[in-house]
Simulated scan of single mutants.
Amino acid sequence: MEEVEMDNILLKYMGNRFQPKIVDPRKGMFRGGPVVTISRECGCTAINIANRMAEKLTLKTGNRWTCLTKEILEHSAKELNLAPEKIEYVFNSPEKTAWDDIFAALSSKYYQSDRKIKKTISDVIRGFASRGNCIIIGRGGVVLSQNIQRSFHMKLHAPIAWRAAQLQEIYKLSTKEMVDYAMEIDKKREILRNYFNKEPLSNTVFDVIYNAKNLSEEMIADASIHLMELKGVLGKQMVMR
């Protein structure tokens, strides 16, 4: 009798633990969402657009939408029992080699491998995406939520000169310094996305790509919500021809 009860407890635990990862065999997609991911080139601000969308989607759907950036780090760090700043470097550095892992492990008894950190981050992001009603900014979210049925993926880009000018307003450095900085950050973000994707990421994974130079934040937010409705992320899906 005790053995049967233990089996039931384990089944219940496993069901709850992995519930967001139930697969719909008809489409090979994971149930969950709705979720929005925003990828961006350095110098294209996403947080204001995300906040506008969250407010509008909360009113439209009656469910509270949240924007996720630093929260992903905080949840991942909690899972690893580390401070958030201890794992933030994985977003800002090239992938380590096996030898890098070995030397780091020897130098610190608190060492956590890049792979373990990235695996935890991916699990956290997939968990948020599966539960839905969230907007994930960067962090490889576009890759990690591709199999969520009700998902919408957008990207912000703009000419490098325009992006450098936006960065100059913040950092007060020269145009060349800002161009170099933007290109460096773009490369680091690409490395992370490619790591999660296992190969170079194509722009075809995005539902829409906006030119942030020519479109206001309000325009991008409203257009995205309209496209989400047409795609069926928020309700009935339009028949595509």
Rank of each mutant, 00 (worst) to 15 (best):
M6S: 08
D7K: 15
K12C: 05
Y13E: 07
M14V: 03
N16I: 14
N16H: 14
F18P: 02
Q19E: 14
Q19T: 15
R26M: 05
K27G: 07
G28I: 03
M29L: 13
R31A: 09
G33H: 10
G33I: 12
T37R: 11
I38S: 09
S39T: 11
R40E: 01
R40G: 00
C42H: 09
G43E: 02
T45Y: 14
A46W: 04
N51V: 10
R52V: 00
A54D: 02
E55I: 10
L57K: 12
L57Y: 11
T58A: 12
L59V: 10
L59K: 14
R64K: 15
T66W: 08
T66E: 12
T66H: 12
C67N: 15
I72S: 03
K78G: 14
K78N: 15
L82T: 10
K86T: 11
K86L: 15
E88L: 13
K96R: 11
A98V: 04
L106Q: 12
S107A: 06
S108I: 12
K109H: 10
K109C: 06
Q112L: 14
D114N: 15
D114I: 06
R115Q: 15
K116T: 09
K116D: 11
K118E: 01
I121M: 15
D123G: 13
I125S: 06
G127T: 07
A129Q: 08
A129N: 04
A129K: 07
S130V: 04
R131H: 10
G132K: 07
G132F: 05
I135P: 08
R139N: 11
G140C: 14
G141R: 08
V143W: 06
N147P: 00
I148D: 10
R150E: 06
S151L: 02
F152W: 10
M154S: 03
M154E: 02
K155L: 03
H157T: 15
L167Y: 02
L167H: 02
Q168R: 14
I170L: 13
K176A: 03
Y181H: 11
A182K: 08
M183N: 05
D186Q: 04
K188M: 07
R189C: 01
E190F: 08
R193S: 12
R193H: 05
K198H: 08
P200Q: 06
N203L: 07
D207G: 09
V208Y: 08
I209H: 11
S216R: 05
E217L: 12
M219V: 05
D222E: 13
A223E: 07
S224W: 04
S224I: 06
G235A: 03
